[in-house]
Amino acid sequence: MGSADFILMINLLVAGLLAAAFVAIAVHDVGRVSARWLAFGYLLGMAYFAIEFSIPAFADARLPVVMAFAVFLGATIAFNGGVAHKYGVTPPWAPMLVFLAVASAAVYLVQDLPRYSLTRMLAYQLPYAAMQCTALGIVLSSRQRLERLDHLLMLVLAASALQFASKPFIAGALGGWGANPQSYVQTGYALVSQSLGTVFGLALALLALAILVRDVLAEAMSKSETDTLSRLLNRGGFERHAELALRDAVRRGVPVALVIADLDHFKRINDSYGHACGDRVIETFAGLLREAAAEHHVAGRIGGEEFAIILPGTNLTAARLFAEGARSAFGELPIEGLPAEHRCSASFGVAELAVAEDFSDLLRRADEALYAAKNAGRDCVRVSLGTARRQFPAAVSGRG
Rank of each mutant, 00 (worst) to 15 (best):
G41L: 06
P334R: 07
Y371I: 07
A75D: 04
R301H: 09
A35E: 03
D215E: 15
F69E: 03
A57E: 15
Q391H: 05
V250H: 10
V98F: 05
V65C: 11
G337L: 08
A329D: 06
V30F: 12
V350T: 00
C133P: 00
A369N: 02
A129F: 05
A68T: 10
V30S: 15
S34N: 12
V33Y: 12
D361I: 00
Q391P: 04
H151I: 02
V281A: 13
A70L: 08
I309A: 05
K223G: 07
R120L: 01
R36L: 15
F348N: 01
S360C: 06
A218R: 15
E357M: 06
F79I: 11
R148S: 13
E352H: 02
A329M: 01
G253P: 11
F69N: 12
V83G: 07
E324G: 06
P114T: 00
H297N: 12
L122I: 08
I302K: 02
V139L: 07
N11W: 02
A190P: 08
F307T: 00
S3T: 13
D227L: 07
S183H: 11
L155N: 01
S3L: 15
V396G: 01
W37C: 11
L333E: 06
A286C: 09
A15P: 03
S193E: 05
D150P: 12
V156Y: 11
E341R: 04
L118D: 01
L157E: 01
R365V: 01
F58S: 11
L136C: 03
A35P: 02
S224P: 08
V256F: 05
A101G: 11
L8Y: 08
A15H: 14
C133G: 09
I310T: 13
S141P: 05
Q186F: 04
T198Y: 14
A105K: 00
R235S: 10
I302E: 04
A20M: 15
G331M: 01
L196R: 02
R251K: 12
E147S: 15
D279E: 11
S3G: 14
Y128K: 09
P339D: 08
A161C: 12
R320E: 13
L126Y: 08
L212H: 12
S345C: 04
L362G: 06
E341A: 03
I260G: 01
A318F: 06
L232G: 03
G41M: 05
R145H: 12
R268G: 06
S195E: 05
A372Q: 02
A158F: 11
F359P: 00
L289S: 04
R252H: 05
G325F: 00
I211V: 14
R390C: 07
N180P: 00
L153R: 06
A57R: 14
A218H: 15
R301E: 10
A276G: 14
A249K: 00
R389Q: 14
F72A: 15
D215N: 14
L246R: 06
A346W: 00
I77W: 10
Y371M: 11
A261C: 09
E305K: 11
E291T: 10
A105I: 04
A47C: 14
L43E: 09
E52F: 10
I302N: 07
R120K: 05
D379C: 04
V281K: 08
S345F: 02
S3W: 09
